[in-house]
């Protein structure tokens, strides 16, 4: 990314001397097995009803020639993250070397300003009671598996993806696989108009998957089952 496109001092893409991790998701390779979702749940003991990564889909075509289009989702670890500037107490921060957007659980007051500011629905409130973890009633999100990446591993979702639909690496390194994928393929990011500079890139994404649709209107029972389950486990 050229220097003139860098608007905020927080942005580190193309900045010399620091890494800028990114994920490339080739949706043509995604088979919707949800293994990434399961691996993430296992890695972090993510509670019922909330997700650090999830795989929504859309059914396209006419019977009998129909198929599901998947769009794996997670925190976009934006280069200019709106959640960082929204947090009144600095509980959300960006790691300069790597570009991880992380959460300080001890400092989070639970005002949910970061949730309101996220254009990607990547943040959620942890429930009051959890089986094994003591981290409760604070906002949580995907960390790009900071603990794994800092030890030279790839994120759990990338490790487990059977189709190699997810590729992870340093975008500031021109020789990395993600840099080459972004350079060679037409890629798409979610909601680029918001100026957040998301760092999850999609190859083969369909805008019907990434934009709001008119069918949303009038669906008063939309996700009622999920909503009821969420309400049982959460108090927001």
């Amino acid at each position: 990314m050229s220097e003139e496109l860098r608007l905020s001092s927080r942005e580190t893409r193309g900045k010399p001397g620091v890494k800028r991790y990114a994920m490339v998701i080739d949706v043509r390779r995604c088979i919707g097995c949800m293994a990434c979702q399961v691996a993430c749940k296992a890695e972090y003991d993510v509670p019922l009803g909330v997700f650090r990564t999830w795989v929504p889909y859309r059914v396209v075509g006419t019977y009998p020639t129909v198929k599901k289009q998947f769009l794996p989702r997670l925190c976009n670890h934006c280069d200019d993250p709106p959640c960082v500037r929204a947090c009144p107490v600095g509980a959300t921060f960006k790691v300069e070397d790597g570009g991880f957007v992380l959460q300080n659980y001890e400092r989070c007051i639970g005002c949910k300003a970061c949730m309101a500011s996220c254009p990607y629905n990547a943040r959620f409130m942890l429930p009051e009671h959890r089986t094994t973890s003591k981290i409760t009633s604070v906002v949580d999100k995907c960390t790009f598996c900071y603990h794994r990446v800092s030890q030279g591993l790839v994120p759990a979702c990338v490790q487990t993806c059977i189709g190699r639909a997810r590729v992870f690496g340093d975008l500031n390194d021109p020789n990395s696989e993600v840099s080459q994928l972004v350079a060679r393929h037409a890629t798409q990011v979610l909601r680029p108009e918001e100026g957040t500079k998301p760092h999850v890139f999609y190859i083969g994404g369909d805008r019907n998957l990434t934009e709001y649709g008119r069918a949303l209107y009038g669906k008063s029972d939309y996700l009622d089952g999920e909503r009821a389950m969420f309400d049982r486990n959460h108090k927001i």
Binding site: G49, F51, W54, P56, Y57, R58, V59, L71, K112, A113, M115, A116, N121, F124, M125, N208, L209, E211, Y212, G213, R214, A215, L216, L223, E226, R227, M229, F230, H234, I236
Partner: peptide, 14 residues
């Protein structure tokens, strides 16, 4: 428009 996605709550309730 997606046919399926997980439930997301609103950030700031009434």
């Amino acid at each position: 428009m997606l046919d399926y996605t997980v439930f997301h709550t609103i950030a700031w309730p009434s």
